[in-house]
């Protein structure tokens, strides 16, 4: 089942990036990238809450940043 999940993710990634050719984007072409919804972490509070939930329920943590998170919940 796990392999199926990650195969699906990989296929989706190929689909999305198939139309992406790397091209330098000029400052005046950044209208779309500047939208709040296009930030890599568009909702920082929600992200922090999720990190705390999964930190307390799983053995893995981290990846997005460093420090913080010290908690007796795990």
């Amino acid at each position: 089942m796990t392999k199926l999940y990650f195969s699906g993710l990989f296929i989706l990634l190929l689909f999305i990036t198939s139309g992406c050719e790397m091209q330098p984007v000029k400052p005046w072409e950044r209208g779309t990238l500047a939208k709040p919804s296009m930030q890599l972490t568009p909702d920082e509070v929600e992200n922090a809450l999720d990190e705390h939930i999964y930190f307390s329920k799983e053995a893995s943590t981290g990846g997005q940043g460093i420090g913080g998170g010290g908690c007796g919940c795990n």
Binding site: I16, C20, E21, Q23, T32, L33, M38
Partner: peptide, 11 residues
């Protein structure tokens, strides 16, 4: 992190 094009960013 890298801007790939006008509508894609990756990290």
């Amino acid at each position: 992190s890298q801007v790939l094009n006008r509508s894609t960013i990756t990290q």
